[in-house]
Design a protein around this nucleic acid. Structure first.
Lengths: 148, 148
DNA sequence: TGACATTCGTTTGCTACCTTGCGATTGTTG
DNA sequence: CAACAATCGCAAGGTAGCAAACGAATGTCA
């Protein structure tokens, strides 16, 4: 949200702009494959960590159950992920890549160029400072949220 | 997106978490007034800068025309904003706060406590570093985006 | 065991972001 | 002036986030 010259934007405004710029580049790269960024994270997790229970995946990706539920539904509709009632607990669903899902994953481009483009070559100390500032802000905000 | 211990999250991950934490606190504060965060920004702009042409507001808030269109439609439905065909250019719409909009704006709590909670007391130099890192990352990402 | 509480996933409905494509208007230029 | 291009707002359709409420399955404890 810009209300002054670009140079005077607040930390908060730059945080938002940076987040959306990265998201946009990720989305643009994935568009030819008809994948959204969060869908990519799900595939990444299943490809690297193997089949997962939906609840655990939600924890790892920090998504609400309701949010993940919709994303998984989309991936199932596209036949990239299979959702089976995993034996033990009949409430839980086990998520597995389908053959089509594995095939697509192998075709996908490496996205690490995005992080590299954004932060490559930046002084290590400055990166560490940035992380510390953002982390402490996040924690303070979440504390305020919990107290309501 | 978390795939390691919290302490090892990347800058990108903290940028996202921080953005969403701030957004969540803002949304929670505005919920009793039945307002979303972007709706608040629109009201803020109209209250402080006076009536605006929709196109200009989109520029100031960095929203696509289509995105703003929906948000304005919501505010019009709630009778907080009036949308008139501003004389000169018959394509443009002039946005004005209604009486109800002004009344609501006066009742809204001050949200500056959020920015204060997040970044208050942080060393000035560290804040400046954070802004510089995020700004340069944003610019580099946007350059890549434009080149596609 | 039976009543109650909790957990997991889904559904519904909302905000907010995007792209694509359209109609209406306006600007430009041969 | 007429044809073409550009601009503005809207509509449709998609992704991704949230809260609230619900059914089914499971856990707990009197």
């Amino acid at each position: 949200m810009r209300d002054e010259a670009d140079a005077n934007l607040s930390v908060a405004a730059w945080t938002k702009r940076c987040y959306f710029a990265g998201r946009a580049l990720m989305d643009a790269t994935l568009r030819p494959y008809d994948l959204g960024s969060t869908q990519w994270y799900v595939l990444w997790h299943l490809a690297h960590k193997g089949p997962s229970v939906q609840r655990d995946l939600g924890g790892a990706l920090e998504l609400e159950r309701a949010t993940l539920s919709g994303i998984i539904a989309t991936l199932v509709r596209k036949d990239l992920v299979e959702q089976t009632s995993s034996g033990e607990d009949q409430r839980q669903r086990l998520l597995t890549l389908t053959a089509a899902g594995e095939a697509l994953w192998r075709k996908l481009p490496d996205l690490s160029f995005i992080h590299e483009a954004a932060f490559g070559g930046v002084d290590e100390a400055e990166l560490a400072t940035t992380i510390r500032v953002l982390q402490s802000a996040t924690e303070r905000l979440q504390n305020l949220l919990r107290k309501d």
